[in-house]
Simulated assay, not measured.
Amino acid sequence: METVDALRDLEQINAMKNYLMEHSYRDYLLFVVGINTGLRISELLLIKVKELFNGDGEMKDFYHYSELESEKRKSVYLNKRVKEAVNSYLDQVNSEQQIYLFQSRKFKQPITRQQAYRIIHDAAVKVGIEGKIGTNSLAKTFGYHAFKQGVSIALLQKHFNHSTPSETLKFLGITKEDLITTQIDVNL
């Protein structure tokens, strides 16, 4: 499996969002949920619409799931961008027929990992992003930007289920120079 890169530049992230939104709102949603939750593509594709909402029809603040490898229960925060994107998408589709959030247009199954790769990779190529971009870039982008905003490597290590901090740093593509330039501003 080829190693892919995180999207480090906010302009590139916005270019990807704009491109995907113009071509398919479902594909835009895949990108937005991926970069805002850090879930693996296999976990993203298994999200069922009903799992995102409580009994009152309100969107939950956390998505709870069982990790595929360990079957441990985990949770990810659904921020404002994710909630807006999900609600906008569900307004555009027949939500009664929508079992999976990233459902195939032909079948009542989620899109495949290969289709998700094509979506992300092709969008990156179309907007002129150089480097290796694939589905794992979504989680790496989440982790990279969380780290740059001051989230501890220990929390990210736990989120990604890595065994060591150095494994997480390598996964995110964090170099010694990045470690030195990370700024934490408590702004007291």
Rank of each mutant, 00 (worst) to 15 (best):
E2A: 15
T3Q: 13
T3C: 08
L7H: 04
R8A: 01
D9E: 11
E11T: 07
Q12W: 04
Q12M: 05
N14W: 06
A15T: 06
E22L: 11
H23Q: 13
Y25N: 07
R26C: 06
D27V: 06
D27Y: 02
L29R: 07
L30H: 03
F31M: 04
V33H: 08
I35Y: 03
I35G: 02
I35L: 04
I35N: 01
I35K: 00
N36C: 08
T37W: 00
L39V: 01
S42A: 12
E43K: 03
L45V: 03
L45I: 01
L46E: 15
I47W: 00
I47M: 15
K48D: 00
K48Q: 14
N54L: 08
G55R: 09
G55L: 09
D56P: 00
E58D: 12
E58L: 14
K60D: 07
D61R: 04
H64K: 12
Y65A: 01
S66I: 02
E67T: 10
E67M: 10
L68D: 10
L68S: 14
E71F: 07
E71S: 14
R73V: 09
R73L: 11
K74I: 02
K74H: 09
K74D: 13
S75K: 13
S75G: 12
L78N: 04
N79K: 05
K80H: 14
R81Y: 15
R81V: 02
R81D: 15
V82F: 07
V82S: 06
K83P: 01
K83A: 07
E84F: 12
A85H: 06
N87D: 10
S88F: 07
L90N: 08
D91H: 10
D91C: 07
D91P: 02
Q92S: 15
V93E: 02
V93Y: 02
S95P: 04
E96F: 10
Q97R: 14
Q98L: 05
I99V: 15
L101I: 09
L101C: 10
F102N: 08
Q103P: 02
Q103S: 02
Q103H: 08
S104W: 07
R105H: 12
R105L: 13
R105Q: 13
F107C: 09
K108Q: 12
I111Y: 00
R113A: 11
A116T: 06
I120N: 07
D122R: 14
A124D: 08
A124M: 09
A124Y: 09
V125I: 15
K126E: 12
G128C: 05
G128T: 10
E130V: 06
I133M: 08
I133E: 03
G134S: 13
T135M: 03
T135D: 05
S137W: 01
T141F: 12
T141M: 10
T141C: 11
G143P: 04
H145Q: 11
A146L: 14
K148D: 09
K148V: 08
K148Q: 13
K148F: 09
V151L: 12
V151H: 03
I153M: 11
I153C: 12
I153S: 09
A154D: 12
A154P: 00
Q157V: 00
Q157I: 05
Q157A: 06
K158Q: 14
H159D: 02
H162K: 13
S163L: 12
P165F: 04
S166V: 07
S166D: 13
E167L: 13
T168K: 08
K170H: 10
I174A: 11
I174P: 01
T175A: 11
E177A: 15
E177D: 15
I180Q: 15
Q183A: 14
Q183C: 09
D185F: 04
D185P: 04
N187V: 08
